[in-house]
Simulated scan of single mutants.
Amino acid sequence: MERRKILIATKTYPSISTKYQETVCTAGVLLDDEEKPVQWIRIYPIRFRQLDFDKRYPRWSIISAKIERNEKDYREESFRIDDSSIEVIRKIDTRKNWEERKALVMPLEFKSIQDIKEQGKSLGIIKPQIIKKYFCKKEIEREWKPKQQTILDQMDLFEPSVQLDKIPYKFGYEFISPDGKKHSCTINDWEIQQLYRNCRDRSNETSMENKEKEALEKVRQKLEDEFLSKKDLYFIMGNLKNHKNSFMIIGIFYPPLIKM
């Protein structure tokens, strides 16, 4: 393994698997020794919530860690990480309209999802030409599958404070990319899923149904009312390992919209 610097751009909401238990996919930018952007990178699998607290890297931090290509994943951006080697170096702030964040991310921008595919990549950031609308869909299954719940129960024996909800809704955008193609993509950004959980859990409503309604409305206000009118939106897109042509929004890059 080689020690490298990585900018953490986004983390997906934890998923449950029989092989890795609870895992998170992290996407970011591989940096050179001078902290200049080199390429997009995917770190998977990583049991983020089981990391020591000093190694739980926040979004938009630069970390140093030992990594190597994940040879079991055909996607060239996919790497494994040595959890014990993680060092959080510093957090990139939002001063001057996200100036430093933009300098690290925008040199690696793609024109469209099709552009990502044509370059043989599976991960990248794009700017939608037109965002048609925000959407929210109810999941068919509200609870984890029995095998997944068994894994969570086993984890709880050792870490009873760890609780992972299955989010019973999917959030997303319908948009048109600069090449004129229409897309409808769900969002798997941990930040957005956590927004829903926080709003639901802090609600003063008495019934779970009303708590969820209030949380859904606050997510809509964030993703539709605020983001579509006040933010200069870019989407960090990633594909699925077993469905290479299917892309989802794994992170939203939302510097303030500068009106001329």
Rank of each mutant, 00 (worst) to 15 (best):
K36H: 14
Y169V: 05
G172P: 02
R200M: 11
E22Q: 12
I81E: 00
I62M: 02
E100L: 10
R59I: 15
L195I: 07
F171E: 04
E71Y: 06
T18L: 15
L123D: 01
I86W: 00
L123W: 05
K241L: 15
R56S: 02
Q163H: 15
Y254K: 13
K170I: 05
S85N: 01
I187L: 07
P37L: 05
I92P: 06
P107E: 09
D189Q: 04
G124K: 03
S64A: 13
R142Y: 13
H243V: 01
K19L: 08
D179N: 14
L152I: 09
T12C: 09
V105L: 13
Q114D: 13
F227Q: 01
K66V: 08
D73R: 04
R220G: 04
I46T: 09
K102Y: 00
S177E: 15
P107V: 11
H183L: 02
K166H: 05
F158I: 10
E34S: 12
E71K: 14
D201N: 12
I192P: 11
Q119E: 14
Y57W: 11
K230S: 13
R220C: 08
W40D: 05
I43N: 01
P58V: 04
L7A: 06
N242P: 00
F53V: 13
E224N: 14
M260A: 10
M237V: 08
C136E: 11
K259T: 11
F79Y: 13
G251K: 13
V105A: 05
E100Q: 12
K91S: 13
E205C: 09
H183G: 07
N242T: 10
T23K: 10
G120A: 04
D52P: 10
L195S: 09
T26Q: 07
Q119R: 15
V219I: 05
N97D: 09
A65Q: 04
F253M: 02
Q163S: 15
D33E: 14
K170C: 10
T12K: 03
Q221S: 12
K138W: 04
W98L: 05
R142T: 08
F135W: 13
G180Y: 01
F48T: 03
P128R: 06
R4L: 08
I151R: 14
E139V: 10
L164T: 11
D165R: 12
P160V: 00
E118P: 00
Y20H: 10
E71I: 15
E209I: 11
A215P: 04
V162N: 12
Q50E: 11
I6D: 00
R3A: 15
L7P: 06
M155H: 08
I125V: 15
E2Y: 10
L240C: 01
I86M: 01
V88G: 02
L104F: 06
L164K: 05
M106C: 08
Q154M: 14
K132N: 15
L228T: 02
D179I: 02
F135V: 05
E205F: 15
W60F: 14
T26S: 07
R80G: 01
E100D: 10
I249W: 06
V105N: 03
S229Q: 15
S85Q: 02
F135H: 04
I43W: 00
I167F: 01
V38C: 04
A9G: 08
E191V: 08
